[in-house]
């Protein structure tokens, strides 16, 4: 690029011109909303019935209220529990599948088919998927009908009124939606590893298990961290699935209410002050996590194009 610098000089202004749409849209629809969200968090501003209270500057009172009320910690806990319940099986299964797909000694047939099938749930509309699970797991739904039919339960189990089963359903949907995606990412990383390493290990008599733990995993460490942190950022944004599954209530006893569902509530009730504080809280957490991703994405190209 630089060696052509001389002849490009006179066209330089076009660089700015072509950037205008991106920058204009970014400033108007992202930067200004971000700034006004932050400034909202320092004002008392909400609606009580039809009556508008504020806006009145109150400093960090919204934050104090947000963190002292304790709801946010419960919802943060819910979000994390459901994320972990989905993520742990997701990373284990994805690693296993990626290792199998990339193992030359296994020569698995039908890889295209398996990859296509396990990636499929990722493209399904999360809200429709949640609605489907709600219907299937209803007291009168087909899952209960099957489970009673084959004698696992004596009577229909009320999946939607048990804390653990609702969380498990959310985690299971998240698992189903993301393990195919993660498998393909990890597979790309594994295919990028120099095969002579495996061959050398095999000649030395290493078992597939040893090769996996001693060679594959250490080399994959950066991509694993990348996958984990981006998944965590995605997990913090968990919304569609629990929102539709529980009809926005996060029941039973708000045990499946996530942070974004909480934010969504504030947005609907126009509680701008508290909504702003919650947004800033999420923004800061995501920011910290993004820095972590950034530090590891320097290695991105190496496995990105494998």
């Amino acid at each position: 690029m630089n060696k052509n610098g001389k002849s490009v000089v006179s066209y330089n202004k076009w660089g700015y011109i072509f950037l205008i749409p991106f920058l204009a849209v970014f400033v108007v629809f992202q930067l200004i909303p971000l700034i006004s969200t932050i400034s909202n968090s320092f004002f008392e501003h909400y609606f009580s019935g039809m009556k508008e209270i504020g806006p009145k500057f109150i400093g960090i009172e919204n934050y104090k209220k947000l963190f002292s009320e304790g709801d946010i910690w419960q919802y943060f806990g819910n979000t994390m529990i459901m994320w972990i319940m989905g993520f742990v099986p997701q990373i284990v299964v994805s690693l296993l599948f990626a290792a199998w797909f990339s193992d030359p000694s296994l020569r698995l047939k039908g890889q295209r088919f398996f990859k296509t099938v396990i990636y499929l749930p990722n493209l399904i509309m999360a809200s429709a998927f949640a609605m489907l699970f709600f219907t299937l797991f209803a007291n009168t739904g087909p899952i209960n009908s099957i489970l009673v039919g084959i004698g696992i339960f004596d009577e229909p189990f009320s999946f939607m009124s048990d804390k653990t089963s609702v969380r498990t359903l959310v985690a299971m949907m998240n698992f189903l939606m993301w393990f195919g995606n993660t498998t393909i990412l990890l597979l790309a990383g594994m295919m990028g590893i120099d095969t002579s390493l495996f061959e050398a290990a095999e000649v030395d008599g290493a078992t597939p298990r040893q090769i996996f733990w001693r060679i594959t995993l250490p080399i994959l460490q950066p991509i694993l961290i990348y996958v984990m942190v981006t998944s965590l950022i995605g997990g913090l944004q968990m919304f569609d699935v629990p929102q539709i599954l529980t009809n926005g209530t996060g029941d039973p006893m708000r045990s499946s209410m996530t942070l974004i569902m909480f934010l969504n509530k504030h947005l609907y009730s126009k509680n701008y002050g508290m909504g702003g504080a919650l947004s800033v809280f999420l923004f800061i957490i995501t920011g910290i996590l993004s820095v972590v991703v950034f530090r590891f994405s320097g290695n991105q190209d190496k496995y990105g194009k494998a």
């Binding site: 909303p33 971000l34 974004i260 934010l263 947005l267 999420l282 923004f283």
Partner: peptide
């Protein structure tokens, strides 16, 4: 150019939800 490129990468991770409040007001 470099600064702009870095900025675009930096905003990559901002979730739409955290700016939703300001977005709706706007």
């Amino acid at each position: 150019k470099k600064a702009l490129f870095t900025m675009i990468l930096a905003i990559m991770m901002i979730p739409t939800q955290v700016t939703a409040l300001g977005f709706i007001q706007l």
